[in-house]
Design a protein around this nucleic acid. Structure first.
Lengths: 361, 361
DNA sequence: CTGAAAGCGCTAACAA
DNA sequence: TTGTTAGCGCTTTCAG
């Protein structure tokens, strides 16, 4: 048998088919689904039964054409493979599904152009957009926001409602933690300059530094990847402080690898702190102390805000919804050892390998 | 100003607006975009320019209503937070984007019912479906496949075209590797019984065992998560062999953790092999030896097959497209040490802690 | 090469 | 409570 490969069985029944079978008008069928209260209970029941039998499903496209209610939202992500996104996607998806919405995924593949193109195509189809991580400029975002209800995640754009992580408070906690361990100098490994979250983290860090009387250094920017972290290890080598806070966990993970390859021990020689608490941070040895962003909750909150926006709410466009962080302390941070000021005796600095093999403990 | 929060600026221009502005009929505008060859070159140019100026974008919904060509495909995933999925999603998304398709993400959250519901809703909207990891039964899948062009990933369903990983060959390689290290007994930690990939891996493993003269044991099934792996460590304790192959990397990772907590050394006491090569396998210490599935390529291939199917190709429904694996050897496998037969002297087995801050994937 | 008209499946008005 | 009608924005005939 030729295999019923294609998906084209008999045409799907339309609302008219159901109406005919039930001996009512199409609008009645429509009502039976949308506003059962406005239909004779018995009739409604019969219609629903017949529809069920015929395997009728309302065509969302047709509905949307009329209504602008496609029951779809778009989630824009600049790089799907970043573990940072996974939990956000999950949270967003769950929140959307709960209210019968479908999620359309727009991965910009780290390209501003691709991202806008995708979003442009999707914009007409969806009822709203969540920008979860984006390469787009504030201006582009504002234009997008004019087109469709839109929520930005972890970024503040004037005039556009957003949901952000409370890094200010979180960074203070992280610095307090390091201060408590006896560190007096902290190096910050910066992320992409264009990233709003890099700016806010650095700023929060500096404020916290003042508050706790610590000296801050800044290195970078580095790509927000493990490779970026490995490169950072290379630079950090020169002017190392006893504690580092990395732009995000990937960088911190790469840093751990780079330091380990260079024979620097964590936490004995250096304490390392990451950001986000992504998958993998407690897999590595030592486990990474990190400022945990409630990623799933962020995704969920963003979608819920978006849905509110869609149904006409007027969220504050200049006071982002702020979600608290939690400092997850693992083994990568420890008391400052006075001994460390003399760097480990390594005659020739070994080449720092790209993340191929394993970190040699 | 009250903040232009909602996304409702002036209504988007329709094809009629453009037609009027250009002084032609709507059908001409339509043609100017779809079949420029059939329009006077100059007119076509003018129309396109005007359309551009007005910011006209064709409404995909309206087009789809008429055509059934929504330029959307659905990717169904049973659990988005499983790192196994990330690269698949990425590959699929890239392939879709390349040809101007948008991807709709259907996360079933590990529930058969949710998955079908979501898919059911999406089915009408999309041109085709990729089932990347699914809790659905063969029967449900076949029904789905009747409704829409559909490709299954890493699963063989009679009558439905699929793209699978070549575990048969891969497992042979893994066993050969362990055999080469001097292991003579291998324990397989089974995944969910319903999972096609569990069946195929076990079967491939047994065949390879026969071929290389190794004895196989089977433990489980375990949930395909880190927690499952931790639990497996608990059982494995009893009848440990010198080598283990886990259903997937998450289980292997959990196993590493459980063994480490119990004082069993890897690879000195036990060699561990995982499956898939997900993110994190080279983060852990020791690095996990794993049978790498080309996840991104799988996603890409599945989408490409789907697109072919949509355009009327008749792929073989009973011979899945098979993608080769690659054995990634890291530190978790090593020569069998004769000494290990005497288990490490641990008076009281320490409690095996659950992974603390891990996303319970 | 271009225009007019019909209609995809649905729902919101309005009428009965 | 139910039916009738019109039309969402687009494309595809079919005439011109």
């Amino acid at each position: 048998m030729a295999g019923s490969t294609g998906g084209d069985g008999q045409a799907a029944p339309t609302i008219y088919d159901v109406a005919r079978a039930a001996g009512v008008a199409a609008s009645t069928v429509s009502r039976a689904f949308a506003r059962p209260a406005r239909v004779n209970a018995e009739t409604a029941g019969r219609i629903r039964r017949i529809a069920e039998e015929m395997g009728y499903r309302t065509n969302p496209l047709a509905r949307a054409l009329l209504n602008e209610r496609s029951s779809m939202i778009a989630l824009a992500i600049s790089d799907i493979t970043n573990p940072y996104c996974f939990e956000i996607i999950r949270g967003a998806q769950a929140a959307a599904m709960e209210v019968g919405y479908t999620m359309l995924l727009a991965d910009g593949q780290e390209s501003d152009r691709l991202e806008r193109e995708t979003l442009d195509r999707a914009a007409r189809t969806v009822e709203g957009i969540v920008l979860a991580s984006t390469r787009m400029s504030d201006t582009s975002i504002r234009m997008m926001a004019k087109l469709r209800p839109l929520i930005v995640l972890n970024r503040a754009v004037a005039g556009v409602p957003s949901v952000v992580t409370d890094y200010r408070h979180g960074m203070r906690e992280a610095v307090e933690h390091l201060h408590g361990l006896g560190h007096s100098h902290i190096t910050y490994l910066a992320g992409p300059e264009a990233a709003w979250s890099d700016g806010i983290r650095w700023q929060a860090l500096r404020e916290a530094g003042v508050e706790w009387g610590l000296r801050l250094h800044r290195l970078g920017p580095y790509p927000p990847t493990m490779l970026g972290g490995v490169a950072a290890a290379d630079d950090f080598w020169r002017r190392s402080t006893s504690a580092v806070i990395a732009y995000n966990d990937l960088v911190a993970l790469g840093l751990l690898r780079g330091l380990s390859a260079a024979g620097v021990r964590v936490p004995q020689d250096v304490s390392v702190v990451g950001c986000d608490n992504i998958f993998g941070t407690d897999l590595v040895t030592p486990g990474l102390t990190t400022l945990a962003a409630p990623l799933r909750f962020l995704g969920r909150t963003a979608v819920q805000s978006l849905l509110a926006l869609i149904s006409g709410a007027q969220p504050p466009v200049d006071k982002p919804v702020s979600i608290p962080t939690r400092l997850v302390v693992r083994a990568s941070t420890d008391e400052r050892r006075p001994a460390r000021l003399a760097p480990p005796a390594i005659p020739v600095r070994p080449p720092i390998s790209t993340p191929a093999g394993t970190p040699a403990t």
